[in-house]
C-alpha cells in the first residue's frame, strides 16, 4: 500500500516515508539523525524563548516574559492539580519540560514545512513521530514515578503492589509495563497517524481540503502533549500517595 502510494506520488511536498531514517553512525551505534536535528531545533527554540523571557525579569511582566510566565503558570497548575499542593514543586521542571518538549515538537512537525529541507535519506518531522523519542520519554516517566515512590515512601513503596489484596499482584506488576507502553504508543500513534493522514490527503487533493485535518492535527498535538504531561504527573502522584487513587484514566 505504502509502496503503491509512493510510487504514484511524484510530488515533492507529499511523499509518504515511514521507516526511512537518516542514520548516523556513532561508534558502533546507529542513531536517527533527523530526529535529533528537529529535536535540537525544538530545544533551541525552548532555550532561546526561556533566555529571552528571563533576560530582563520585571515585576510587571511584558512581552515574552508575560507569555512564558503564562506557560509556567499553566504547567504549575497542571502539576499542582495532579500531584497536590504539597509535593508538586520539585516535579514542575520534569513535567513542564515533558509538556513543552512534546508540545513544541508536535507543533513544529505540524507547522514548519520541514520537507523543504532535503536530507540524503529520510525526512525531517516532529521528533515525537519516532518511537524512540516517545519510548524514551515514557521510560523516563516510569523512572520518575519509581523515584518519586521510593524517595517518598522508601521500601514501603512495594506495599502498593499488594495493598488492596495480594490477588491483584500480577495486575499491579503489569501496570508498570502498560503505563510506559500506553504513554509512548499513544503519543507516537497520534502524531504519526496525523502526519500520515495529512500526507495522504495532500497526496489526493493538494489544495484546501487537508486544511481542516491540519487544524485538527494541531488540536490533537496540543491535546497529546497535555495528556502525556498530565498522565506523568498523575502517575507520580499515585506513586507518592499510595494505592486507592485510580481516578486518572487514559485518554
Amino acid at each position: 500500500m505504502l509502496n503503491f502510494l509512493s510510487a504514484v506520488s511524484s510530488l515533492p511536498l507529499a511523499k509518504i516515508e515511514v521507516g526511512h531514517h537518516l542514520y548516523w553512525q556513532l561508534g558502533n551505534l546507529k542513531i536517527h539523525g533527523q530526529v535529533f536535528l528537529t529535536s535540537w531545533f525544538v530545544i533551541g527554540l525552548l532555550v532561546i524563548a526561556s533566555l529571552a523571557a528571563t533576560r530582563n525579569i520585571r515585576r510587571i511582566p511584558a512581552g515574552i516574559q508575560n507569555f512564558m510566565e503564562y506557560a509556567l503558570e499553566f504547567i504549575r497548575d497542571l502539576a499542582k492539580n495532579q500531584i497536590g499542593e504539597k509535593d508538586y514543586r520539585p516535579w514542575v521542571p520534569f513535567i513542564g519540560t515533558l509538556f513543552l518538549f512534546i508540545f513544541v515538537s508536535n507543533w513544529s512537525g505540524a507547522l514548519i514545512p520541514w520537507k523543504l529541507i532535503r536530507l540524503p535519506e529520510g525526512e525531517l518531522a516532529a521528533p515525537t513521530n519516532d518511537i524512540n523519542t516517545t519510548v524514551a520519554l515514557a521510560l523516563l516517566t516510569s523512572l520518575a514515578y519509581f523515584y518519586a515512590g521510593f524517595s517518598k515512601r522508601g521500601l514501603g513503596y512495594f506495599k502498593k503492589y499488594i495493598e488492596p489484596t495480594p490477588i491483584l499482584l500480577p495486575i499491579a506488576i503489569l501496570e508498570d509495563f502498560t503505563k510506559p507502553l500506553s504513554l509512548s504508543f499513544r503519543l507516537f500513534g497520534n502524531i504519526l497517524a496525523d502526519e500520515l493522514v495529512v500526507t495522504v490527503l495532500v497526496l489526493l487533493v493538494p489544495l484546501f481540503v487537508p486544511l481542516p485535518i491540519m487544524a485538527l492535527g494541531l488540536f490533537t498535538s496540543a491535546i497529546q502533549a497535555l495528556v502525556f504531561a498530565t498522565l506523568a504527573a498523575a502517575y507520580i502522584h499515585e506513586a507518592m500517595a499510595g494505592h486507592g487513587d485510580e481516578g486518572h484514566e487514559e485518554h
Partner: peptide, 15 residues
C-alpha cells in the same frame, strides 16, 4: 517503524 536503536537512550539523556 519500530526500529529501536541508540536514539532512545540518547534522546532520554538529551531530554
Amino acid at each position: 517503524m519500530f526500529d529501536f536503536d541508540a536514539t532512545l537512550p540518547l534522546m532520554a539523556v538529551q531530554f
